[in-house]
Design a protein around this nucleic acid. Structure first.
Lengths: 147, 147
DNA sequence: GTATATGCAAACCGTTTGCATGGCT
DNA sequence: AGCCATGCAAACGGTTTGCATATAC
């Protein structure tokens, strides 16, 4: 579902450590556990606090839910992840910090990357006077094909 | 801020009544009050439950907050409005039910329509196998221009 | 040693719901 | 009469916070 690793020993501590360093975050045990799940294998991930909490529990590591929340926020503040709003009910966090579209699978509440190179926005509305565009969020909502 | 009328007598009851009828909703006092604020002057509106609640209080009408929530949901279920998710913290409701992009004013948390004719998406990612696109949400986030 | 991170439980906040009352048709 | 809408307050669920303890540098 969230497609996260189930074992930390398949992840790369070095990559996680330098990732944390890039955000000027101390490599504590909890942060390392979460970071290894998120980027340890070099793949991009989309998680909610709950899916990440479940995943880290499965590895046997002990991290409290509050720390998962606080850590995800810290990762965002440090510019290592970005928050994606699709659902209202919960927050999604994305390790891919480039500007790119998302698929939102309505049936399962899952968020995945959509291929950025297959999206072409050739014209964008002018920002109103005195305003600048800080981001353009594109969410492609998916449902099961009718038949 | 939410730009809603402050007086109901400037609104058009007839338009509101037929709008409710279109959704097969009975024209109760509370629904009429809310509908007149939302579409009584023929303009499209973007509200949260709270902004609409405040607005209806200012007119002197008595409608409970729970009813505002329930009514907005009823309007959406009836296809008269659509919910827009931008913020996570709260839900926005839009009287414009066509597919169109939005400006989200980060500073004030306000949502407005962006001119649909100035947005051109010439290529969209293929939906994954077995999936169909149910909607494409485009949110243009605005911040104050740097200088 | 000092600043920062963690864990727990309680607080928080927007939203929904259960249930009794009131209004349409 | 019967169905539907409303209001209140309590429940809810995801998220944040206060504070005591533990850890990194």
């Amino acid at each position: 579902m969230s497609n996260l690793p189930t074992r930390l020993d398949r992840c790369c501590p070095k990559r996680s450590e330098s990732w944390l360093a890039r955000g000027a975050l101390r490599p504590t045990r909890q942060r390392m556990s979460l970071a290894m799940l998120l980027i340890g294998d070099g793949h991009d991930r989309h998680v909610t606090a709950e899916t990440l909490f479940s995943a880290v529990q499965e590895t046997g590591e002990k991290v409290s839910l509050a720390t998962v929340y606080n850590t995800l926020r810290a990762f965002c503040d440090a510019g290592l992840m970005q928050e994606v709003t699709v659902d209202g009910a919960r927050s999604y966090f994305d390790t891919n910090i480039t500007d790119h579209p998302h698929y939102y699978w309505e049936e399962s509440g899952t968020l995945t990357d959509a291929p950025a190179d297959q999206l072409a926005i050739t014209q964008l509305p002018e920002p109103p006077a005195g305003m600048a565009i800080s981001a353009v969020d594109v969410i492609i909502r998916l449902r099961k094909k009718p038949n």
